[in-house]
Lab assay of single mutants.
Amino acid sequence: GSLMYASIFGNVSAIIQRLYSGTARYHTQMLRVREFIRFHQIPNPLRQRLEEYFQHAWSYTNGIDMNAVLKGFPECLQADICLHLNRSLLQHCKPFRGATKGCLRALAMKFKTTHAPPGDTLVHAGDLLTALYFISRGSIEILRGDVVVAILGKNDIFGEPLNLYARPGKSNGDVRALTYCDLHKIHRDDLLEVLDMYPEFSDHFWSSLEITFNLRDTNMIPGSPGSTELEGGFSRQRKRKLSFRRRTDKDTEQPGEVSALGPGRAGAGPSSRGRPGGPWGESPSSGPSSPESSEDEGPGRSSSPLRLVPFSSPRPPGEPPGGEPLMEDCEKSSDTCNPLSGAFSGVSNIFSFWGDSRGRQYQELPRCPAPTPSLLNIPLSSPGRRPRGDVESRLDALQRQLNRLETRLSADMATVLQLLQRQMTLVPPAYSAVTTPGPGPTSTSPLLPVSPLPTLTLDSLSQVSQFMACEELPPGAPELPQEGPTRRLSLPGQLGALTSQPLHRHGSDPGS
Rank of each mutant, 00 (worst) to 15 (best):
E319W: 07
D182A: 10
N163D: 08
R301Q: 15
P441V: 11
D127L: 02
G507C: 09
S243G: 10
S312T: 10
P168I: 09
D203E: 11
G233K: 08
F205A: 01
E193H: 12
P314K: 04
M413T: 13
S271Q: 04
L480F: 12
T228E: 10
S271Y: 12
P446G: 10
R422A: 07
F213Y: 12
W206K: 06
P316K: 11
P383T: 14
Q466H: 03
D296I: 11
D174Y: 07
P446A: 11
S462E: 10
E364T: 07
A433K: 07
G159E: 01
S202T: 08
M220N: 11
P263M: 09
S357F: 15
S432D: 09
P387S: 12
S171W: 01
D146T: 11
T499F: 09
A131D: 12
V149Q: 08
L376K: 03
D249C: 11
A150S: 06
T248Q: 11
S334H: 11
S312V: 06
P222R: 12
S451L: 11
A177Q: 01
T130D: 13
C337M: 08
R236W: 07
E210G: 05
R273A: 10
S445V: 12
D203M: 13
G262W: 09
V149F: 06
E364K: 15
L195I: 07
R360T: 08
T425V: 11
L409C: 06
T436E: 12
R315V: 06
A477L: 10
L152I: 05
T252N: 14
R422E: 04
Q237P: 12
W206F: 04
R188D: 02
N349H: 06
E406K: 05
R238T: 09
D356N: 05
L473F: 13
M327F: 04
R247A: 10
S259H: 10
P291N: 04
L192T: 06
S304A: 14
D196V: 07
Q418P: 03
D127N: 03
R176M: 05
D251W: 13
G323W: 04
E295W: 09
D249K: 10
S333T: 04
P291T: 06
L409F: 15
T212H: 03
I157R: 02
T407R: 10
S259Q: 11
T130F: 14
L209M: 11
A469C: 14
E331A: 12
R246M: 11
L458A: 11
G298P: 04
R307P: 10
S235Y: 12
P288H: 04
A260V: 12
P222K: 05
R176I: 08
P270W: 07
T415G: 07
F311E: 07
R216M: 04
I135G: 01
P387D: 14
F201M: 09
Y180C: 03
N377K: 13
P454G: 09
A166W: 06
F134L: 02
P383Q: 14
C368N: 15
A430N: 13
G511V: 15
A166M: 13
R408M: 09
E331V: 11
D190G: 02
R385C: 05
S304R: 14
P321G: 13
E297M: 04
F134D: 02
N403R: 14
A469N: 12
K250S: 12
S243Q: 10
